[in-house]
Amino acid sequence: MKKTTVLALTAAMLLTSLSAAEKKVEVQKGIKMPYMEFPMKQGKGMYSTKGKCNMCHSWGYVLNQGPQSKAFWRKKVIKMIDVFQAPIRNEDIDEVVEYLYANYGKRVKG
């Protein structure tokens, strides 16, 4: 008999602590993401490239790939179009690739 009371009490306590824990979670009101400027190198095609790439992601995502070959940048741009539907028309691919290679390029094979 006593045992049942203790059990019931424990259960009640558990319930209380659970709802307290849940309340604590609810206090988390949501977050506000900061904007950070990752400056682009000045160069031919910068504004056009900016508009196309920044539509989906920060410029940091581009420049922190490290200096890369022209073939690499071309492959990346095409992947962005094919896989992620980046709004880059076929006739604009060269301009973006040239800007990337001229400013974030590395003269290696591959």
Binding site: K32, M36, F38, G60, Y61
Partner: peptide
Amino acid sequence: NIAFPQKRPLITYSDRPPL
């Protein structure tokens, strides 16, 4: 020198998406 929400300042490669 900017902290992301619920974080202390970290080495930051991109803000969107956060890296």
